[in-house]
Design a protein around this nucleic acid. Sequence first.
DNA 1: TGTATTTTAGTACAAATGTTCTAAAATTGT
DNA 2: ACAATTTTAGAACATTTGTACTAAAATACA
Lengths: 211, 211
Amino acid sequence: MMKTGTRTRQRIMAQALQLFNERGTDAVSLRDLAQALGISHGNLCYHFANIDALIGALYEELADHMSKLVSGAVASAETISPGQGLGFVRLSFEKLFDYRFLLLDFVRIMRRLPEVKARYQELASVRRQQFGLLLAALHAGGWLKEESFQGQYALWAEQALLMGDFWIASGEILYTGDPADRISHYVKVFTASLAPLLTEQGLQDIGWGKE
Amino acid sequence: MMKTGTRTRQRIMAQALQLFNERGTDAVSLRDLAQALGISHGNLCYHFANIDALIGALYEELADHMSKLVSGAVASAETISPGQGLGFVRLSFEKLFDYRFLLLDFVRIMRRLPEVKARYQELASVRRQQFGLLLAALHAGGWLKEESFQGQYALWAEQALLMGDFWIASGEILYTGDPADRISHYVKVFTASLAPLLTEQGLQDIGWGKE
DNA sequence: TGTATTTTAGTACAAATGTTCTAAAATTGT
DNA sequence: ACAATTTTAGAACATTTGTACTAAAATACA
């Protein structure tokens, strides 16, 4: 039991992800989606009662991917270098880009799905702590300068969260370069926010050293 | 001629701004708005054909305010100090917050109103140049360090645009402090991104110096 | 004051969307 | 192979929303 069913469910989610990313959640109706899939919209409603249920399911999918990424990074946090940290940032950015509709419509989705908002807030709080751990580890390894003013690291974490969540939205409007370089570009912008905090050793590690 | 009319138009825009900020543009219909104003929705349509026309008009209003602010800042750009620059940032942030619905729904609005998107992209390009001028002026005044790597200033400008556009959206989800301190908080986050580029003299000027 | 114009209210209509329901078809497990 | 369950298609319904239209009211102007 439940075999073709789950397969259909996954087909629906994959197609929804694609359409959401292309047009935005508010420009995709259940009927549009059913038509794109070649199934009846009655059938679609059997699997997902409405658009919000689909969004919720896709958020869960992204959250699963992200927490796997995070647990991988945390495992090696003790001995991490800035370059490795930024490698993790790139992987995160790539995954977020796969689910970009969520971040392009961030506020509206969070307003409409309070349970997603609550889960995201937890996640953000965890990420904040992890940034703290990461910075502490980098500092211990001699990669990071001392704070040049009180609370600098915490404020940097704030920036990092903001940029991590909204680089896609900003790029959707302002990025005009080669689409293939988009993620790299924003990893670079992100890196530039960290760079001033790094020691010369740290800059060398990410390849931005003096010589 | 046209006296009570323009007054009504302004009343509509003021009420729309309030409702949009509270609920988001997609949760406000012409009928909701008419009801809140105590007028018929037929009348409302006489002034604004649809929600998009209202959004466009409010964007123009914000753009006017912002360009006045910008021309004021540009006038004193030659002799500007970091503290004055951040004062301008605060004024900008306050004005943006008044029209926050635009930034909370940024991507969706830009997708739906291509003419607004085009105008915004021009504005962003101007702002980018102004950041460049600002940084050059600060550097000339001895407030700013040399670039510690190639392209650092340009990348900082990129960050500044991103944060300037999305601090409101981020705060809508994540900020849990005193609402009255919200703008100050994000000015501080913004400041923290500039601080590592400042000379000791620059840090003194913004009150973040060593002693 | 009287006429032309602008503004307003109210109604009606069309399109889209989420939602519900029924019955047929397919699949599963015994 | 048969019964139970899941899945699917399709129709029907209610609601919302933008839009258009008409006629009355208010206003401006000469």
